[in-house]
Simulated scan of single mutants.
Amino acid sequence: MIRRKILALFAVMGAAAVSACAPQTVYVPQPVAIAPQPMAPVCDTRFQVVNNSSRPVFSLQYSHASRNDWGVDQLGQAMIPVGGVWNARAANAGLYDFRITWNGGGAAELRRVDICRASRIVVTNRGLYAQ
């Protein structure tokens, strides 16, 4: 009986010794791949000022709506003639305010135009609108 217990003890110890030598499965965390975020579409800030009024446009000012001033006259010494088009590009995306003055007097303003959506500022005898 003692002999059986000793044999059983050796069997258990042998199994433990063999399992200690056996290859072990080790969990190694793998890095998780994160899908890149899609890039926001690039805003095209180019636009045209189209003079559909009956008078030449003497000055054109525009600035980001977050500013408190109109900025400089973009036309300088030039004018936008009746039926003329002037091409421009805003510095940044966002909302812009526009102001024109006509040759001979009078002015019109248009505020909070999303420059990413509007590609034309149209001057009429009644004022400005965006397309």
Rank of each mutant, 00 (worst) to 15 (best):
I100E: 05
R55K: 15
V26K: 00
R112G: 13
A107N: 12
P38N: 12
A88L: 08
W70V: 06
P81V: 00
Q131W: 07
R67P: 00
M39K: 15
I80W: 10
G106T: 10
I121S: 03
P81N: 06
R111M: 14
N87Y: 06
A118D: 05
G83K: 12
S63K: 14
S53N: 15
D97A: 10
A130M: 04
P31N: 01
F58R: 10
P31C: 02
Y129H: 07
R89F: 02
Q77F: 11
A40L: 06
S63Q: 09
R89T: 08
P81K: 12
A78R: 15
V85P: 11
D97P: 11
R99N: 12
A108R: 08
P31K: 10
L75V: 02
I121T: 02
W102K: 04
R67W: 07
Y96Q: 01
I100C: 05
A108Q: 06
P41I: 00
F47H: 05
A91V: 08
Y129P: 01
A17D: 00
G104K: 08
A90M: 05
R112D: 09
G127T: 01
N52E: 13
A8M: 12
S54Q: 15
P38Y: 10
G106A: 14
Q48D: 06
V123M: 14
Q74M: 03
V72H: 13
F47Q: 10
A17Q: 04
R67A: 05
N52F: 07
V82R: 09
A22V: 10
L9M: 05
G94V: 04
Y96L: 03
S53D: 13
M39A: 15
M79C: 08
G105S: 09
M1L: 12
P29L: 05
S59P: 08
N51S: 09
R67G: 02
F47G: 07
G14F: 07
A108D: 02
A88N: 08
D97L: 10
D69R: 15
R67E: 01
R117Q: 14
D114N: 13
M79K: 15
G104Y: 01
K5L: 15
G76Y: 08
G71M: 04
M13N: 03
C21G: 13
A35S: 12
V123W: 14
R4E: 10
Q131G: 11
Y27C: 04
R120S: 12
I34N: 05
M1A: 14
S119I: 08
T124E: 14
K5A: 14
A33G: 00
D73R: 11
R126L: 14
R67C: 04
V49A: 07
A8S: 15
R117N: 11
G71F: 06
G71S: 06
Q131D: 08
